[in-house]
Nucleic acid binder design. Structure first.
Lengths: 296, 296
DNA sequence: GGGTTCGATAGGGAAAACCGATCATGCTCG
DNA sequence: CGAGCATGATCGGTTTTCCCTATCGAACCC
């Protein structure tokens, strides 16, 4: 039954029987049989399908929530028992929004020093993906924006607030200033993240509030590309302070604070809400509180 | 895995492999193998045992809580899916303290009228047993004292407050009075419930507070015995109002309120805490609120 | 010290789980 | 409009797991 629920969760995640099957390390016929068996056991159809995956039925939606809770609790049981044997050990997978990668590294370094037997995996993902990755057990925790997320099913620990820096060459006209407003960037040549990334959308909102329509001449989903363009051409970009500091190190680039110090998005750790947490997660949340900029 | 957890819960409840096995409808060797397999899977010993059940290990205690949560959620998943198919139907088992049996009947009658397809089972049990019966799924809900119970893992709905009545023959000396104090009963011939029942302990507390040491000449664990003795001999007894009213009907007996109207124990419905509740339980809790004496 | 209770172990038969191969359907693209 | 492809269901056979009966050995109880 438990394995059937895992199958169900996998299919709901992948929206595809074949992919879900390889993800589970079983064959597709086995998976099909498992789902059918689960449906028989519960007496309701869970998945619409005729020659192709067709989404969850309403009952399926409902059952999915229970399945996640049950499977999650079962994993936690195992995790907790392993903790009793081996102490803090095992793997910890964390999905991180790209602009928080430097902070994530800071956290993971600190955590690894304290708990050397825990192997950590940091994955860069869009903030829109992170919550669902937590929900269906693709990762154990995430680092993302805390402000606009549904807070119900997650535990959170704030890490820092995003402050934006304008990055330009040292010989650029702006380089002399020690602070610029969003409106000052009207008409400037900017290279920015692609609009599918939340960081870009946040920056867009700032521009909008300042009555400026940003003209991004170069777009990329990689912060490295942005900085490289700034360095090579006469472009400028806007990045969170830490990321900017990290990428600019040793290069002839200037960082200038943008906008006023207020109203910045909070970035923090997001973990599945569960009472109590696994030992590792508890340790991670504790560590996040310690490393955090925010006195909370 | 889920069935192994059920086995584990059963053994923890029965504290005996053989009994647990028959309760589960399997043989003892199967059960033994199941437990061992669960222990292997979790990598920890759960139960002390050498030729005989020896209690849970600390890890076992911990695992038991998770097992209950997981199995409970799994049952709820099934229950919810069945509800989606058939509406409110199935079985509802309720454990009731003896002195609340008349109230339980009132509740069950009302509930059955509204939801005729739900079969109800009412079991008389001591209040000390009821919570653990709920925890290990022997019953779906209970009716018991709400005041001194750990409230954390249970949902409750108050039904009524216990008011005590002195019951005596119409020709007894006390019969004329319209109210008596606990101290007035000093030295009187009383027949009461046995001291292992919480109702008796509550009455004892009242006596103690009034500086009276009760002399119960006849004790029984059956309220019927108490009333029969009052009717036949020159005994008196003390019972909750509703139960007294029910048992005295049509007999030449008097009921006289005992003590002042304050500080009486609250009796109510107790259900396993779960978010959300099963449809049946939700309906039952609603019904309890409707039938209740207490305007809450 | 014989009888009893309780859980572990051994062995065999039934059930199931799983896989590879194949089929049926619906979609895409030339 | 037809060939090719993608996707999930179905089938047959093999392997694994499950569960029962029978039995054993230790602890317990007069």
């Amino acid at each position: 039954m438990l394995d059937k629920l895992e199958m169900f969760i996998a299919v709901a995640r992948e929206e595809h029987f074949g992919r879900a099957a390889v993800g589970l390390g079983i064959t597709q016929p086995t998976l099909s049989a498992g789902i059918k068996q689960l449906e028989d056991q519960l007496g309701v159809q869970l998945i619409f399908r005729g020659s192709r995956y067709g989404g969850l039925t309403p009952e399926g939606q409902n059952a999915l929530e229970w399945a996640r809770r049950i499977v999650g609790d079962a994993r936690q049981l195992k995790e907790e028992m392993r903790f009793k044997r081996h102490g803090l050990a095992g793997q910890l997978r964390i999905a991180v929004i790209p602009t928080a990668l430097t902070w994530a590294a800071k956290l993971s370094a600190q955590f690894s020093r304290k708990h050397p037997r825990v192997r950590m995996t940091l994955l860069s993902h869009a903030s829109s993906e992170i919550l669902s990755m937590i929900e269906d057990f693709s990762v154990d925790a995430g680092i993302s924006y805390l402000d606009n997320e549904p807070v119900g099913k997650f535990s959170t620990a704030p890490l820092y607030r995003e402050h934006y820096m304008l990055v330009c060459r040292s010989d650029a006209p702006m380089a002399a200033r020690d602070r610029v407003g969003w409106h000052d960037l009207d008409g400037e040549k900017l290279c920015l993240l692609t609009p599918d990334m939340q960081n870009r959308r946040i920056i867009n909102q700032h521009f909008l509030a300042a009555g400026v329509t940003p003209r991004a001449g170069i777009e990329s989903n990689s912060t490295v590309v942005l900085i490289a363009n700034v360095e090579d051409g006469d472009w400028m970009t806007v990045l969170p302070a830490d990321m900017a500091r990290f990428l600019c190190a040793g290069k002839p680039l200037c960082m200038i604070p943008v906008g006023d110090a207020e109203a910045h998005k909070t970035v923090g750790l997001v973990a599945p809400w569960r009472e109590p947490h696994t030992p590792v997660l508890k340790a991670l949340l504790t560590e996040a509180g310690r490393v955090s900029d925010l006195s909370r």
